[in-house]
Design a protein around this nucleic acid. Structure first.
Lengths: 190, 190
DNA sequence: GATTGACTAATTTGTCCATTTAGTCAGTTT
DNA sequence: AAACTGACTAAATGGACAAATTAGTCAATC
């Protein structure tokens, strides 16, 4: 019974955060939506921030699953890392909750949301880092600092997908894959 | 005489913007510092934003000069582009005015300042783009979209110098040069 | 003709007070 | 007694209004 209530609360909170954002969602609203008393929320979660944190932790697992699905063990590292990163960032922008929270960080800068989105970014970096470590072990790519590489790969993708569009025509998925291949794998040297 | 007054105003404004930021600087303050009447400022500049814009335009020239000095025509492209970008970002962070304005964008997000810092970034990208175009013509590097490459190079440097430090030990200048060489020039492929 | 600073309209800041809200806890339900 | 609740409180937020500040103008002055 109590497990179910926790799920009800998480679902209600996710829905409300997705629709109105973190700041504009009140604990009473969540309680009403979840058909529980406000106090009940606090038996499962330390506070509002903790509730958001648990939701994001679950989302991180979901994102990893998405990325895993996008990859194909028969294809080379370069292709898989592109597919994984592209799928992750696509998910991040299309998923209602993350899209809303990204917007909230841009427009209001709610500290709790900023923190949790940073956690999400580092989870992505850590996930890519694992893939890079495997590729290095398998001899698919040069030896390099896997964490910095993963960090730069994410930054590069965000730059190409999000930042470039602010001043230019968006780049196609193929173009991005091609650019990524050129800079990260082949290098500019002749 | 009037040329001199314009210089006085620019110097006063630069000093005040550097010390207090754009928003916290009043036109009256600038006039007092420059020993002119407030109205005189408006004979040289359309408005406060235009005054900041002229200062940044001059700064862009200064930054290009800095970059030019950091480079050595006898050395290869890879080394020069690193030297140029490193010097530019070092300048951007150490120069009183740019450091203050970058802080103002982060903390307050003053629109006029945001705009002008974006202009600065694109001037840097355009400068690097020219260097890349030359390197391509000379056959020093592969053919590639020079603008996107310059854009990604700046993003990469900012990521390594500014963003990485937020969660990790800062990277040394040598390490950054080495990472840049690895990712942009050599590529990860074996 | 160049320069000025008092002036104005508009924005920003400060100060209330009313409302809202996160989190608690005494009491109710199961 | 264990789980649950919603009235309650202290703190934060928001709105309304006045006071202060400021960007930009322009008639008077140099």
């Amino acid at each position: 019974m109590s497990i179910d209530r926790k799920r009800q609360i998480i679902e209600a909170a996710t829905k409300s955060f997705s629709l109105f954002g973190y700041k504009a969602t009140t604990m009473e609203q969540i309680a009403k939506l979840a058909n529980v008393g406000k106090g009940t929320i606090y038996t499962f979660f330390k506070n509002k921030e903790d509730l958001l944190d648990e939701i994001i932790s679950a989302l991180i697992l979901e994102i990893k699953k998405e990325a895993e699905q996008a990859m194909n063990p028969d294809r080379p590292f370069s292709e898989n890392v592109h597919r994984a990163l592209y799928r992750i960032l696509e998910f991040r922008q299309q998923h209602q909750l993350t899209a809303r929270l990204l917007q909230e960080v841009r427009n209001i800068g709610t500290p709790a949301v900023q923190e949790v989105m940073k956690k999400l970014d580092w989870a992505i970096i850590d996930y890519i880092r694992e893939k890079i470590d495997i590729a290095i072990k398998k001899g698919e790519i040069r030896d390099c600092d896997a964490e910095i590489t993963a960090f730069l790969m994410l930054k590069t993708y965000i730059a190409l997908i999000v930042d470039w569009e602010k001043d230019h025509e968006p780049l196609t998925k193929e173009k991005i894959a091609q650019l990524f291949e050129l800079y990260f794998l082949k290098g500019l040297s002749k």
